[in-house]
Design a protein around this nucleic acid. Structure first.
Lengths: 149, 149
DNA sequence: CCTAATAGTAGGTAGCACCAATAATAGCTA
DNA sequence: TAGCTATTATTGGTGCTACCTACTATTAGG
């Protein structure tokens, strides 16, 4: 679809623009990560584990924006690939503590580069400054809708 | 999810931000349009018909960003609600010409107001100027990824 | 006239966000 | 300490959306 042909009503809507941008972003990210035999949910989990250290699946969920029930299945995958370990918390035996492995950390580096090229492709119509502006604006927009939608 | 808790890697990614913003936007729009017993695809089609006049389903598809096969079903719905008419083009009997009815035009006005409140809710963390900036930046971003994603 | 392209349509598929129910465990409080 | 409530992980879903394929009818072009 060519945006120029879209009804001006839609082109003026933040909700529509952001939806269209998301479609393109998801497609591009899926492309580059599939080449690495990976997935954006895995990248999000690895990033969370790297930044915040070993943590429970619920914490992982709150930080990644993924549902708890989906986290279970993605962690299954990470463990199967030996990118993370899952062990029971002895202090609270309900909790699993997920820990990034050395392999997982190396993997994250590889995915960082892939994800970075995806950002370039999505934002190639923008200058560096504009891209920063966009990131700032979207960050504030999301914060403003965190609670009570 | 609280964005502040998200890994900084993700918070810096246009693709991630735009995906999160889209989730919130879709949710808000769905809410206000469901109250009107409508749907964003219907709004998009009505908007396209209003701005560009009677046209084929393929044209409608190119302008709304919806798939041809989905258009069929949404037009079915519009026709059932008497918001649009579907008639065969006598010049090219393969084509259907979709025409907005008076009822459809009135309906569009109602939905305009609902959709507008949704925009306010999504962007309430931004000033008016910032919202304009965001719209401009997203418009350019989408244009830049129209072809060859 | 034959072939290729196009419009509409039917019937899917895969991925994603999200939900409900359950079992195990922890913590609170009467 | 017994009983109630909350929390964690997990299973098995659901509905929505974007997208795809195959088919028919029709048109346009060589």
């Amino acid at each position: 679809m060519d945006v120029e042909n879209a009804p001006s009503r839609l082109r003026a809507l933040p909700t529509w623009l952001v939806a269209q941008a998301a479609i393109r972003g998801q497609r591009i990210v899926a492309e580059v990560l599939t080449e690495q035999d990976s997935h954006r949910s895995e990248y999000a989990l690895l990033a969370g584990l790297d930044e915040f250290g070993p943590q429970s699946q619920t914490e992982l969920s709150e930080r990644s924006g993924l549902d708890r029930s989906d986290i279970v299945r993605w962690v299954d995958d990470l463990v199967a690939r030996k990118l993370a370990r899952r062990s029971q918390d002895p202090q609270d035996r309900r909790r699993n503590v997920i820990t990034l492995t050395a392999l997982g950390r190396r993997r994250l580096g590889t995915l960082d580069r892939a994800v970075s090229t995806a950002q370039q492709r999505l934002t190639r119509g923008l200058s560096g400054v504009e891209r920063q502006q966009l990131v700032a604006l979207l960050g504030r927009l999301i914060e403003g809708t965190d609670h009570a939608g």
